[in-house]
């Protein structure tokens, strides 16, 4: 048998400690969601898992947290899905179209369009949050899905990403396709889109997670409880924990878990696409 080197033990120890630091805090939420609230209130998070998860899950999904009775977990989950999907799909479709126009057409104002679009990479939404809010308000889009999604799309990350990718596609491909009689739409549909499949998947994961996890913008734009997303609802949920006799720790914590579950699962299961999307988008 080979002697295990001390170095290997150190390496694994570091990695195990690192992994525990990443996992334990979330496991703690799960533990609290499985324990009766009264116990949590007395002792905080413990080591033993209880049997309350199904009950808390039901409460979280179907019992409203606010006053209007509209923001049940189910409703918030639905809104989160719309935000995540709408954002990801919108951004990819719009970005691919724009990138296609910039890379594959002889456009007089291509450079101008390029700069107009790519300047948006410089300023995140957060620095222009108030005026954006005012404009959405002026347009009557508060508490709407459009108001929630479209302003978030107003940055060119996906466009930039696809532009980079399209540029790396060999020149000869469009030339061969043109000789083969493919026009601009056919070339896009028959060749460029299938060729970009992995890129689209990678982008989709990054964008879905990004959209799903939005907090500041939904906090400002949605005041109507029926429009809350899970992530946006968190603040209200934690606030209801304050000043009650028996805070609903179980329900609150299972909502946190539900809020992170879809993006976490996507990231874990489509890990290689996710890593590709993250490292190649270079923002």
């Amino acid at each position: 048998m080979k002697r295990i080197k001390l170095e290997t033990i150190v390496d694994h120890s570091v990695l195990i400690i690192g992994s525990l630091i990443m996992i334990l805090p979330v496991a703690m939420l799960l533990q609290m969601a499985s324990t009766p609230d009264i116990e949590t209130m007395r002792n905080g998070p413990g080591l033993v898992f209880g049997d309350q998860i199904p009950a808390n899950f039901e409460k979280a999904m179907f019992e409203a947290s606010g006053f209007s009775g509209e923001n049940t977990g189910l409703r918030m989950l639905y809104n989160s899905l719309i935000l995540g999907l709408g954002f990801a799909i919108g951004k990819i479709v719009i970005g691919m179209m724009a990138a296609y126009a910039i890379v594959y057409f002889r456009l007089k104002f291509a450079t101008l369009a390029f700069w107009i679009i790519f300047t948006t990479l410089l300023l995140p939404l957060e620095v222009r949050i108030l005026p954006s809010y005012e404009i959405v308000q002026k347009l009557g889009m508060l508490n709407t899905y459009q108001g929630l999604i479209i302003p978030l799309i107003a940055s060119a990350t996906a466009t930039f990403f696809f532009r980079q990718f399209f540029r790396s596609v060999p020149e000869e491909l469009i030339e061969a396709a043109r000789i083969d009689g493919a026009g601009p739409i056919k070339f896009f549909v028959d060749i460029l889109v299938p060729l970009s499949r992995t890129m689209i998947a990678a982008m989709f994961i990054i964008m879905f997670v990004y959209g799903w996890n939005q907090y500041l913008w939904p906090t400002m734009i949605t005041t109507d409880e029926g429009m809350f997303t899970l992530v946006r609802g968190i603040k209200q949920i934690t606030q209801t924990l304050e000043g009650t006799n028996l805070p609903e720790y179980g329900k609150s914590n299972i909502l946190q878990i539900i809020a992170i579950l879809p993006p976490v699962l996507i990231v874990i299961f489509f890990q290689s696409w996710f890593v590709k999307g993250l490292t190649e988008s270079d923002k």
Binding site: E172, E175, A177, R178, I179, D180, I191, L195
Partner: peptide
């Protein structure tokens, strides 16, 4: 005349095959 209508065929250095 558009390339597709010139009744020509072309072979490229890197072949330009459609990878998918």
């Amino acid at each position: 005349v558009d390339p597709a209508d010139r009744d020509i065929a072309m072979v490229f250095q890197n072949y330009a095959l459609y990878p998918h």
